[in-house]
Every structure is written in C-alpha cells, then in structure tokens.
Nucleic acid binder design. Structure first.
Lengths: 185, 185
DNA sequence: TCAGATTTCTTTAGGTTTCAAGTAATTGGC
DNA sequence: GCCAATTACTTGAAACCTAAAGAAATCTGA
C-alpha cells in the first residue's frame, strides 16, 4: 500500500527541469514510477482552457452582435478565402469536422441565402459551394469586427510573445500530427 | 484604388517588432491603416487548430479504447480531484459549459452507474455529485492511458518548450479573461 | 416577518457534432 | 465492357451544447 510520495530529479534526464515521482511503498522501499507526464498534461489542460475561453468569448460576441453561430462564421471564413468555391470534402477537411456535419451546416446557410451550392459538371458526386454576394458582404462586416475582438483578447501579449507562441504552436501542431498519424497508420 | 502595399514600423508603438501595413492609393499617397491585427488572428487560428487536433485525437482514442466520450471523461476528471463531491454549479464553472449541459451529462453518468448524486442537506437546491467506486476505478484506468497519449502528442517538445508554452498560455489566459470581463462588465 | 432578489437546478427549443450506415457516381483493373 | 473498390455526400440516431425561461429554495433587508 502506498504510504508517501515525494519529488525527485529524474536520473534518465539529468536536466533539472524534468522531474518524476517517487513512491515509497509499505516496506518503505523507494520505487520509481516508469514515467511522469504531469507537465504535458498540465500544458494540455492550459491549452484547452485558453481555447475554450476565447472560443466562448467569440461565440458570445458573434451571437450578440450579428446573431450568428460560430460554426456558420467559420464556414463562411473558409469560403471567403476561396472565391471560386470549395467542395464539401474540402470544407470538412479544413474545418476538421465530419462530412455529415458539413452537410447540415451548408443546408442551413444555403437556406438563409449566404451560400450558393451547385453540383459539379465534371463529377456529379461533388457539390461546390460559394459565398453569395450577400453572404460575402455580411461575412466581411463580421470579420472586420472579429479581428478586433481577437486583437483585444491577445492584447496583453507583446509582439515577441505572439511570435514565440506562433513558433511553439507550430511545433506542437507538427508533433500532434505526427502522433495522430502514428496511431492511425 | 489600391495599388501597392508595404510594411512599415508603427508610430504608435515604437518597438521594432510591431508592424502595420501601408497602403498606397491611386494618387500614390501613403495611407496608413488604423490597425493591423493579422498576427493575432493567425495566432488564434493556430491555437484553435492545435486544440482541435489534439481534442480529436483524444476523442478518438477514448472511444476506441474505452467507448467513452470526451465530455464524460472530462466530467469524471473533475470529480476525481474532489472525492467529497461537487455541486453541479461547480462542475459547470470548472468545465466552462452551461448549467443545462451539466444536468444532462450528469443524468447519463448517474444512469450508467459512474456517478452518485444526492441533494444537499444544508441547501435543498444543491445537488452534490461524486464518482462511485466503480466510476472512480474506471476513470483511473482511463486517466493513466490518457496521460501517456498526451505525453506522446507533445513528444517533440523539449522541457524548455513546455515551460515556455505554459508561461505564454498563462499570459494568454489572463489576457483573455481580462478582455472577457471588460466586455460583460 | 415577509416580499423581492438571488441562487441552483431543470426544461425547452434550436443548432451542432459524431459515428455509422447507406446511396450515388466515378475510377481502376481485367 | 463490366465489376469491385473508392470517393462524395446524405441520412439517422444519440449525444452534446447554448441561451432563455421557469421552478424551487434560500437570502436580504426593511
């Protein structure tokens, strides 16, 4: 039975910044756990907290100022970058959401007149969607304000902080993609 | 009509790392845009991408290995930290989700035998929920693997990277909270 | 004491999201 | 040409999520 826990420096990585946990068992024999990943876990939770916080803020403001949901805004943002339009699969990949989700989302945005949807001539399985003129105008108006909100959210970060975060998040993204790829093969 | 764009240092903030965009109009008169927030916007998108990527990975693995959803896992994680239990409001605040959401989530976890729920004696409005013995055992099993997945996801980051990201995300969180608070009053 | 405000939770309506199964069109081998 | 595999999208069921309205208990301050 576990009696006590203490921190110790990790012999496998002599750097002073990596630590592991020592557990003293009932016979008071020191047993070192194979790994300690608490730092990474805390980092993930903090990353998640930041995103949830900002996402909630953006969601509230979008609703309050424009009565639009975040997924709709995101979809329009994707389309705004590609005037000639995209297929539903493209949107699905870029937004990192499922195909079925995009179908419903597009359905409602076509219904409300923001999107134009047509079947591709070359491949009749493919649906190409684009912003309508009205949809684009409305999006641009929202996007301009949105940019200011985001600037405000990150307002206390110095330009150096922003650069450094960009660099570290790029590294994180690459690492996560590698990990995901390794799992699915 | 816009003819050309060039970068210049921003007179409002003389630091050399902050930039803004100069636009030269049809009369070739330099017109400085009021602000340039593209960097912050790109940072936000990258942050969101990282989180979505990792969240999707964790979601897949949780389903595949334990047939459990991420929200259920998150709720159990909150409760595991507090053996004496929490109120629904506490959970709602900690998970940063709506009250109504927690009601349904708890409903299903009580149903499946992971959670114990009772009305507080001191205040009959309050529902106190705790992990059942079975719920705790199952969570601990999942959490142990989860920690390894997260370590793997961040595997390419050095301990220094991790520390630096922690620091910058703490700053980001504080900045975002300040911004949110300023809006709602 | 007691009426109004507040807190805690539930309910409702509408939208978002995933997964899995299904349909239709195309592609690739043979 | 033809059939199997693949690709693009849709559908359906269950879960998740929010905002807003509502019900019940408690608190507050005359």
């Amino acid at each position: 039975m576990i009696r006590e826990a203490a921190l110790c420096s990790d012999h496998r990585t002599p750097k002073p910044d990596k630590i592991c946990i020592m557990i003293l068992d009932s016979e008071t024999k020191a047993v070192e756990l194979p790994e300690h990943h608490g730092d990474e876990l805390r980092l993930w939770l903090r990353l998640l907290t930041c995103t949830t916080l900002i996402e909630g803020e953006v969601r509230s403001r979008l609703r309050e100022r424009f009565d639009v949901t975040l997924p709709r805004f995101d979809l329009m943002a994707q389309l705004d970058k590609v005037p000639e339009g995209m297929t539903l699969s493209d949107v699905s990949k870029r937004m990192m959401v499922s195909n079925g989700n995009v179908t419903g989302l597009v359905e409602r945005l076509v219904e409300s007149g923001h999107l134009d949807r047509r079947t591709s001539d070359a491949d009749r399985r493919v649906q190409v969607i684009r912003l309508t003129k009205a949809g684009r105008a409305e999006f641009r108006k929202m996007a301009a304000e949105h940019e200011l909100w985001i600037a405000d959210v990150f307002g206390d970060l110095t330009p150096k902080d922003v650069r450094e975060l960009m660099r570290l998040l790029a590294k994180t993204k690459a690492s996560a993609q590698k990990s995901a790829k390794a799992r699915t093969g």
